[in-house]
Amino acid sequence: MTGPTEPGLPRRVVVTSPRMRARRRTSGYGVTQDIDTQTRLGEVFMASLIRSQLRLAIFTCAALILAVAVLPLVFWLAPDSWLGVGQWLPWVVLGIGVYPCLLAGGWWYVRQAERNEREFVELVDRS
């Protein structure tokens, strides 16, 4: 498994960098450096990013709870009406309708989270 035990085969050396895609910046000055070395200024910048990401996360969770987790309560409060016209309505909502909503919520979140990070990097670059 780990190579050298196999007779006749030279040990294979794998040369990889897990961060091939990350852009390495050449300048070691400015706020980037502040963040890296934990100065007061760097902490202020980081705290603002964490706050905006947390706000976004809480907002998305709240939307999920309002949209999906409120359904049992709706079913509970209006149980008899399902027996009339729409007795299969809960099946359609839970069996099909929920999934596109979850996907749309996730897509929206990823867009906003990446925008937050982009704005943060631009802010740091300008400073």
Binding site: R19, R23, T32, I35, M46, L49, I50, E117
Partner: peptide, 18 residues
């Protein structure tokens, strides 16, 4: 903790040490 928070939340494009 400050170091850990930076590692958890800083975007990779900032170019900090991994």
């Amino acid at each position: 903790i400050a170091r850990t928070m930076v590692a958890l939340h800083a975007p990779e494009s900032l170019g900090l040490d991994p």
